[in-house]
Amino acid sequence: MSIQHFRVALIPFFAAFCLPVFAHPETLVKVKDAEDQLGARVGYIELDLNSGKILESFRPEERFPMMSTFKVLLCGAVLSRVDAGQEQLGRRIHYSQNDLVEYSPVTEKHLTDGMTVRELCSAAITMSDNTAANLLLTTIGGPKELTAFLHNMGDHVTRLDRWEPELNEAIPNDERDTTMPAAMATTLRKLLTGELLTLASRQQLIDWMEADKVAGPLLRSALPAGWFIADKSGAGERGSRGIIAALGPDGKPSRIVVIYTTGSQATMDERNRQIAEIGASLIKHW
């Protein structure tokens, strides 16, 4: 067993022997301040990774656009098919120029040779490549099948209805392509620590998230040296922004954090800054 596999296998073990965790309302004060600064709703939840206990939450059962955070769930569904012998990570998928959609920095470079399922998941999570996500959605049967996968996990809230990039439209009061912070946090925890996926697939999923290259201005910008984070960000229309993450000190994750916002007129930089400040408060009061 590799060191990384050992780390993920012992996530519940280490967490069980940690000192009790206590909620700190100071972080919620910052979440509410972010709402004021952005002029928009902000949803927040913080779960203990081992027990699933909610440590703090704000608007945990209000719907927010998922945006690209759905790509972690998508690759979880792909990995479940791999575990069941219905898919192979090494299978190569070929596609054409007509398949390319807006923001496809990886797939646009491989029109000639195609990409493997493993490479597509890596591109979808680490670079948020939209064509990679659409190609992977095709392998599982489309958005409705991802929703069905989530329902089978016990998540009857999260739903995907459309493809990239239309799913980022974020129309107010439109339930399409949305989740709730509580539902997303619980589902992410199941994917990373539950028995739904094999140990190898859980490790692969967290490795992809740990290698995320496009979430630097968010929670990662607030992390002290030595902290662990595996995350996936999302951005959408109407001032929408979000991030889902597993993080913790001492090089291992111990909490799940989900943050979503929508309806702001603020710039992307300002949305990023507010999420980073929430992260800084979380870490300060850990």
Rank of each mutant, 00 (worst) to 15 (best):
R189P: 14
S128C: 11
A230L: 12
G248E: 03
T193I: 05
F58H: 04
D250T: 07
P217E: 14
L205K: 01
L89F: 01
R41F: 11
P143G: 08
D83E: 07
I140N: 09
L199M: 12
D129F: 02
L196K: 02
A185K: 12
P165R: 01
R59K: 04
L89I: 02
F149M: 10
S80T: 14
S264C: 00
E166D: 07
F64V: 08
L100R: 03
K232L: 12
T112V: 05
W208M: 05
V157K: 07
K71C: 00
D161F: 00
A276Y: 14
M153H: 07
L111R: 03
F149N: 04
D36G: 01
G90I: 06
I283L: 13
L167M: 00
E195H: 03
E61T: 03
L196R: 10
Q97F: 05
R271L: 11
D129I: 01
D48A: 06
R118H: 12
M127A: 14
M180L: 10
T186P: 08
I54V: 10
R189L: 15
M153L: 09
L38K: 00
L199Q: 10
I140Y: 05
K213N: 01
P105W: 03
I54D: 11
D212N: 15
W208K: 02
L135T: 05
R273T: 13
L219Y: 13
G248C: 08
I45A: 13
S221E: 14
V31C: 04
A84M: 06
T193V: 07
V101N: 09
C121Q: 00
E46M: 08
T186C: 04
I93M: 00
K71N: 15
V42P: 10
R273W: 13
L89T: 04
G142C: 00
N98Q: 02
L282W: 11
L247V: 08
A215L: 02
E277G: 07
H151G: 04
S80M: 07
H285I: 09
D207L: 04
K284M: 09
G39C: 08
P143Q: 06
T261E: 15
D177N: 00
G52K: 09
T139D: 09
A183P: 06
K190I: 15
K190A: 14
L199T: 09
V29Y: 15
N134T: 03
A185V: 06
R241K: 14
G76R: 03
A225E: 10
T27Q: 08
P65Q: 01
L199R: 08
Q265P: 11
R238D: 00
V257F: 15
N168A: 13
L135Q: 04
Q37C: 05
A132Q: 09
D174M: 09
T267M: 12
N168E: 15
G234V: 10
Y260V: 12
S281L: 14
A182P: 12
V82G: 02
V42I: 15
R81I: 05
E102I: 00
L55S: 08
A185C: 11
P143A: 04
L135N: 04
H110C: 01
I278H: 11
T27E: 14
E62Q: 14
G141M: 07
R159F: 07
R59L: 05
M184P: 06
K190D: 12
R92K: 08
M66N: 05
L55I: 08
R91P: 13
P224E: 12
I54G: 04
E46Q: 10
L199W: 09
M209I: 14
R238W: 05
R59P: 04
L111D: 08
V117A: 06
R189Q: 04
S221W: 15
A133C: 01
G43D: 11
V78Y: 09
T107E: 03
G52Y: 09
Q265M: 10
I278R: 12
L137S: 01
L150H: 03
